[in-house]
Simulated assay, not measured.
Amino acid sequence: MSLPGQFSDPRVITLFGLLAVSTVVWLSLGLRARARDRRDPAHTPLERIWHPQESIPLTPAEEHAFGQVVSRLSPGSAGRLR
């Protein structure tokens, strides 16, 4: 059985074949990763990410500047940023 028109070109058949193979590989690797994550809960993401600056104490001037930035970013009375 031959394919009609432009689908009989070997380059098109090769392209579709590579697309099919890569899709199958991508799906199988994704399913294996999901199954591994279900079995091994140690790879689950942390609830909170530690940032290196947390261990460095801020000066009072830095704390004041940070507080001013946060107060500008907090929602105003209408729920919009100031």
Rank of each mutant, 00 (worst) to 15 (best):
R82C: 00
L18Y: 01
Q6E: 10
E47V: 01
T14C: 05
R11S: 13
L81G: 00
P4E: 08
M1H: 13
P45I: 03
R39H: 14
S74Y: 02
S74P: 00
L31Q: 11
V12M: 15
P52C: 04
V21A: 11
S77L: 06
D9K: 07
G76I: 02
S77R: 12
P75V: 04
P52Q: 02
I56H: 08
G17R: 13
L3K: 08
Q6K: 03
L18G: 02
R82P: 08
F66N: 06
R82T: 01
S71F: 05
G76K: 06
A78R: 13
P57L: 05
A42W: 06
L73S: 04
E47M: 09
S55I: 01
W50C: 00
L46K: 15
R32G: 09
I13S: 10
L81K: 04
R38E: 14
G67M: 10
R11H: 06
S8Y: 00
T59R: 10
R34T: 08
S22Y: 02
P75L: 14
L31G: 05
E62L: 02
L18I: 00
T44A: 15
P4I: 01
F66I: 02
R11E: 14
S8H: 04
H43E: 06
A61I: 02
L18H: 09
H51S: 10
D9Y: 11
W50Y: 12
L18A: 11
T44Q: 14
E54M: 11
T59M: 02
R80W: 09
D40P: 05
A42D: 14
G76C: 05
L58V: 11
V21L: 13
T59E: 06
T14N: 12
